[in-house]
Structures are given as structure tokens and as C-alpha cells.
Write a protein that binds this DNA or RNA. Structure first.
Length: 474
RNA sequence: GCUCCCAUCGUCUAGCGGUCCAGGACGUCGGCCUCUCACGCCGAAAACACGGGUUCGAUUCCCGUUGGGAGUACCA
């Protein structure tokens, strides 16, 4: 099996494209096939090399590597269409020689006029085929080359998601395969590349179903075997319309920057439009084992950030804590934590806040108090007014005494010492916990008392509780 | 406009003629747990778009309506 992902470097990697890339990759890995990455950069107006770099970066971030393509090479390269331009001409000449294509000198304006007339008659806009039987030669002046499409019959293809898709040939235009500039056109180029690269299965978005019969016609004209197809439904915005910027972030990069884990995005992307029984959480490895075209849904799916957020938290709780801490590090810095403060306390600190956050941004916001300079803490005035009151002074004072006597600064030892004191003094843990929490964090909500004390470290804990006691005096 | 595709809880989905007064998940609501918040656990509300057929029997098959999506370029 040879599959490919063929993005245009005209922007960031879109989540729709990312899912297509994922589906192809999963299939290749599952069946021991080859995953090819091809850059479709023939749109000279919009293609930019920096976008290509960006797309490769996002693919790698998701954990999708490729067997053939830019930066890794392969036996059927080159893998950028602009570097393959000399491959296309001979096929066009052949079709011309065999009478399966013809030169057309009609101006774009005239063709457009004809289309408008047809639309006015309630018909499908098409070229009127004026040049089809003129047998124009190479010296006919400025011209395009069109495919001589059959006028009758149907062109069918079998789709792994949709079943048999039939199109009446009367619906198919004599499409341009070479522009007047000499550059071949997308629908033609894809077919040639897929033939030359030996692509056996084409998995792409539903927006290409209407292109498929046109491409099948080209395969047939060339006498090449037609690959298998699978068209996945599109990703829609929450309102059911085509996903666009106005719905929020649409690039893989922006989700990375917003603090989503690659594991969660991959998991969500795959489950949107595909299912495997009742299972919701999948690692990339599990997906390789479970993924199959037969599980792909036909209807388009709406993008649901809430579910993505849930999966992201799920994955923050699943990945290795040390790994999570490293991935969270830049987010802590962005949240104001001095880089040098992110010491060995980072892992335990992250462990205390990961179930209280849904993204790495929120994780850092929830845990930055551990590392911020005391004077930079964000104080919730209502919490201060409620908990750092004179009545709390003796409690904080007493607790300070207990903590000063604790040498083994572990969750267990701290809990044991504090609970013993609470019991002996007849206090209630609930009475002491909030003043301490506000002293340490500035906020009324946060991690559990003992895990927080342990993670913040002895010096900071004692210093902030003392400061809290002073503040409570009024 | 025309062509193609699609249609189960608010959302993602299971269901491939009777096992469905429709299952799971997110979200929502309630409860439990509890030093706060959160996590976790328990529970609740919530759907087969509509109309015709086919069949002993339709969520499941066929047709139509409605709704949504895609395409309709010398863009990809």
C-alpha cells in the first residue's frame, strides 16, 4: 500500500488537512505501507516556502513522520511539484498525439460568456467544446490543452466511505489540463504524480469527490490503473457551516500554542468522523492498531472545543509527569515564572495542578504561584478579606511552629505532623486550610494543602505563611 | 441555478430488519467524596428530520420533501 498526503504550502497546516494526514499515516503504519508527503506548490501566487516548513513542523509535532518526501527523499521524487514540471509535458503530448486531448484557442472571456448563458438556462456551466474537433496544431497561437472527455455514459468509482459514486459523463467538462502559460493544472498534475509515485489508495477530504471522476477520466485516457479512493467528511464549525477563522483557531500550530497536547489533538481529530466501538481515548499506537476505513463516518462533524479540552486534560493526566512538566515549562515562563525558578519543584508542582487545568496555558496559570516572586503573586482581595483575618493569626502562628519542626518535607510527613497538631489542639483542618492556601497562592482555590506545601518547598512555604500571618493581623 | 454527497440526544457517535420504550462519550443538571477548587464516583434530563412505500415487522431497505455540506476555474 502506498498512500500520500499532499498539502499546498499556502498557509498553516489546517486541522482538516491534519486529519487527512493522520488518516493516511495511520493506514500506512497499520498495513506496513509507505507514507508519502508531496508538496503541491504549483499555485505560484500563494505558495510560500515558509509555509512548507511550517507544515512539516506541525506534522512532526503530531508524531506523523513520512517515508518519502521533502527532507527525507525517496525513490519517486522529487516531492515538490514545481520540481517535477518536466514530468508532465510528455503525458500531455501523448494524449494530444492519441487524440485524447486537443488544443483550444478560445479566450477565457468567451468561455466564461458561454458558461453564463448556460447558467441562465438553468444548466450546468460548461465549455461549449467549440475547438474539440478543429484539430488545432502546435502553431495555433495562444491556447490551452483540454481533455477530450466522453459525451455519453457514466464515469464511476468505488469509494471506501461512500460506496459506488456514479457521474454522468454529460456532466463532465472538457477540462483544461495545460494552461496557456504552459503550466499543467492541478487535476492533471495530481493524477500524474499519483501514477508515478505508485499511489494505490487516495484518502482525502470530501471536497474532492467532485474532482474524482475528472481524475478517473485522466487515468483512463492514460491507460493507467485507477487507485482506490476514500473521501472523509469535512470538519465543520460549531454552527454546521464550513469551518473558518471566525469559528476560532483552525491551524494545528494555534492549538499547540494554546497549550493542547499533540496526543489530545490527534485523539480528537481522529475520533471526529471515525469511531471504534465505545472507545474514546486512543494513543497514536492504539490508533494504528484500531484504525480502519470502514469506521469513517459519512456525515460531516462539527468542531467541539469542549470535547477537545476534556481529552486534553485526560492526556495531561496520562502522559509521563516529567514529560508533561517539560512541555509545560515554556508556558510557565510565558505566565511570568522566572526560568531559573523552574527547578526540581516543577514536576511535583505540575502534578498538583494538572487535574485543575484543561490546557497547558491553564496549567501554568494554575501553578505559576509556586514559582512567582512573592511580591508578584496575584491577590484575590475577596479571598484575603475572608480568610486572612485576625482570627486566623493564632492558627497560622501555631501551624508555623509545627512546620518549622518538620524536617522531612514530604506530603506524608507534612500531613502526619499537621493532622496530629490539629487533633491535639482541637482545631478543624477546614479552619486552617483556607488561610494557608490564601497565604501561599493569593487565591481561595488551589491544590490540596499537603501536596501544595510539599511541592512549594520549605523556605517558600514558611516565608509565605509568615507573611500571611502578618497580613492577617490587619 | 445545476451536479454530487449527507441526515440518531445540544455535540461526537454505536446501531448494519425484530436483541432499541435506542447504547457510549463531551457538555448540562443533581448527589456523593472533601481543607477550597478540581479530579473521581453515582444518577438525571436529552435523539431515530418529515411524508410515502417495501415487509409479518422498520432507526435500520427504496422513493420523495425538507435541511445541511461540497463542487461547478487557464486555484489547489
Amino acid at each position: 500500500m502506498r498512500v500520500r498526503f499532499a498539502p499546498s504550502p499556502t498557509g498553516h497546516l489546517h486541522i482538516g488537512g491534519a486529519r487527512t494526514a493522520l488518516f493516511n499515516w495511520l493506514l500506512a503504519r497499520r498495513h506496513g505501507g509507505t507514507y508519502i508527503l508531496r508538496i503541491e506548490d504549483t499555485d505560484q501566487e500563494r505558495s510560500r516556502r515558509e509555509y512548507e516548513v511550517e507544515i512539516l513542523r506541525s506534522l512532526r509535532w503530531m508524531g506523523l513522520d513520512w517515508d518519502e518526501g521533502p527532507e527525507v527523499g525517496g525513490s519517486s521524487g522529487p516531492y515538490r511539484q514545481m520540481e517535477r514540471l518536466d514530468h508532465y509535458g510528455p503525458y500531455i503530448e501523448r494524449l494530444l498525439a492519441e487524440g485524447k486531448a486537443y488544443r483550444c484557442t478560445c479566450s477565457a472571456e468567451r468561455v466564461e460568456e458561454g458558461r453564463q448563458q448556460l447558467v441562465a438556462q438553468g444548466l450546468k456551466p460548461m465549455y461549449d467544446r467549440r475547438c474539440r474537433d478543429l484539430a488545432l496544431g502546435p502553431d495555433c497561437g495562444e491556447h490551452v490543452v483540454r481533455l477530450r472527455a466522453p459525451l455519453e455514459g457514466t464515469t464511476d468509482f468505488s469509494d471506501h466511505v461512500r460506496g459506488l459514486v456514479q457521474t454522468a459523463n454529460a456532466e463532465l467538462d472538457d477540462l483544461v489540463i495545460r494552461r496557456s502559460s504552459g503550466l499543467p493544472v492541478y487535476n492533471f498534475v495530481v493524477v500524474i504524480d499519483d501514477i508515478e509515485m505508485g499511489v494505490s489508495l487516495v484518502v482525502r477530504g470530501e471536497d474532492h469527490v467532485n474532482n474524482t471522476p475528472k481524475q478517473v477520466l485522466i487515468y483512463q485516457a492514460l491507460g493507467a490503473p485507477v487507485p482506490e479512493f476514500a473521501h472523509a467528511p469535512l470538519i465543520l464549525g460549531p454552527d454546521g457551516s464550513r469551518l473558518s477563522k471566525r469559528h476560532g483557531a483552525t491551524s494545528v500550530r494555534s492549538y499547540e500554542e494554546d497549550g493542547y497536547l499533540a496526543e489530545a489533538l490527534v485523539n480528537y481529530l481522529c475520533r471526529l468522523g471515525w469511531s471504534h466501538g465505545d472507545q474514546e481515548v486512543f494513543s497514536l499506537g492504539e490508533l494504528v492498531q484500531a484504525f480502519a476505513l470502514s469506521g469513517i463516518t459519512k456525515a460531516g462533524g462539527r468542531w467541539d472545543v469542549d470535547k477537545l479540552r476534556w481529552l486534553n486534560q485526560t492526556w495531561m493526566k496520562r502522559v509521563d509527569p516529567a514529560d508533561l512538566a517539560e512541555r509545560a515549562r515554556p508556558f510557565f515562563v510565558a505566565a511570568g515564572a522566572p526560568p531559573e525558578a523552574l527547578d526540581e519543584r516543577l514536576v511535583p508542582a505540575v502534578l498538583t495542578v494538572r487535574e485543575r487545568a484543561w490546557t497547558l496555558v491553564e496549567l501554568a496559570a494554575a501553578g505559576r504561584f509556586y514559582f512567582l516572586p512573592d511580591e508578584a503573586l496575584a491577590w484575590d482581595e475577596a479571598a484575603v478579606a475572608k480568610h486572612l483575618v485576625p482570627a486566623a493569626v493564632p492558627l497560622l502562628e501555631g501551624l508555623l511552629g509545627v512546620l518549622e519542626g518538620v524536617s522531612d518535607w514530604s506530603v506524608e510527613a507534612l500531613e502526619e505532623a499537621v493532622k496530629a497538631w490539629v487533633e491535639a489542639e482541637g482545631h478543624k483542618l477546614g479552619k486552617i486550610a483556607q488561610p494557608v492556601r490564601v497565604s501561599l497562592t493569593g487565591q481561595a482555590t488551589g491544590p490540596g494543602l499537603f501536596e501544595m506545601l510539599a511541592a512549594i518547598g520549605r523556605p517558600t512555604a514558611l516565608r509565605r505563611i509568615a507573611a500571611g500571618r502578618d497580613r492577617a493581623r490587619g
